[in-house]
Amino acid sequence: MSPRGVATPDVCERLFAAAERIVERDGPGALTSRAVTTEAGCAKGLLHAHFAGFDEFVAALCLDRFARTAAKARALAELAGRNTVTRNLDAVVLALFVSGGPSISGLALTRPTATLRIREALEGGAPGFGTIQEAVTGYLEAEQELGRVAERVDPRSVALAVVGAAHHLLMTGRPGAPDPRPSMTRLVAALVGDGG
């Protein structure tokens, strides 16, 4: 536990990671500001010292995780010609499901204020599913130029299908449901073939 008045390094990430552990272990119903700070091992008021309220915290958590996945998707361009196409896409798509992704997304949906904040941020240019879709499209086009993705494959349609399926699984997932990652891996492989 951090003593009062002592700075907590990387406080936002510490709180976000604690929230993910709670949701993964106990489900979204167990997530409260007190549960998060207890799990993070920090002062009870720390969350509210950094966020205007719990809905702001949930929105920031979701947006942070979208931004991380979008950054991973943007890095796909550097992987063109390396590994396999399926493996490269899997790494990005499966990042959406790490640390309770479906539960965190479901949590945001049950909190209208958090959902509104997320929507406003995305409309304001924050990276989200659209950013990931654009990056996947660009990556597939680059791989197509290298001959590692068949000419018959439409990169925009594949990107839409992959990101849309991930979005669907995130928004409809719940604790205890089958792991969606194997389904996503099969979908990616079916859409792009053997991936070069």
Rank of each mutant, 00 (worst) to 15 (best):
S33K: 05
G176V: 09
K44D: 15
Q133M: 09
G195W: 04
R156Q: 00
P127G: 03
D55A: 15
P112A: 06
R174S: 10
P180D: 13
R21E: 14
I118P: 05
R174T: 05
E24P: 01
T137E: 14
D179N: 15
L79H: 08
R152V: 13
E123A: 15
L191D: 05
A30L: 06
E141M: 09
V192C: 14
E13A: 11
E13D: 15
L47M: 03
G147L: 08
V11H: 04
A114Y: 10
S157W: 03
E13W: 07
D194L: 10
R34N: 10
V136D: 00
R25V: 12
G138Q: 09
A19V: 07
S2P: 02
L47N: 04
T137V: 06
G45L: 03
F51H: 15
T110K: 03
A126S: 15
E141Y: 02
M171L: 15
Q144D: 06
I132T: 12
K44E: 13
R21T: 09
V192W: 05
V85S: 08
E141G: 02
S183E: 11
A114M: 07
E24T: 14
C42T: 15
R82V: 10
T69Q: 08
S183P: 01
L61Q: 11
V6W: 12
V192P: 11
L107Y: 04
A17P: 01
L107D: 06
A135S: 15
A190G: 11
F54E: 05
A70C: 04
A30D: 08
P178M: 13
P28A: 02
R174F: 01
R74G: 13
I22C: 07
G173P: 04
V93P: 00
R68T: 08
S157I: 01
A190E: 11
I118S: 08
C62K: 10
A60D: 13
G138W: 02
G41D: 09
A95H: 09
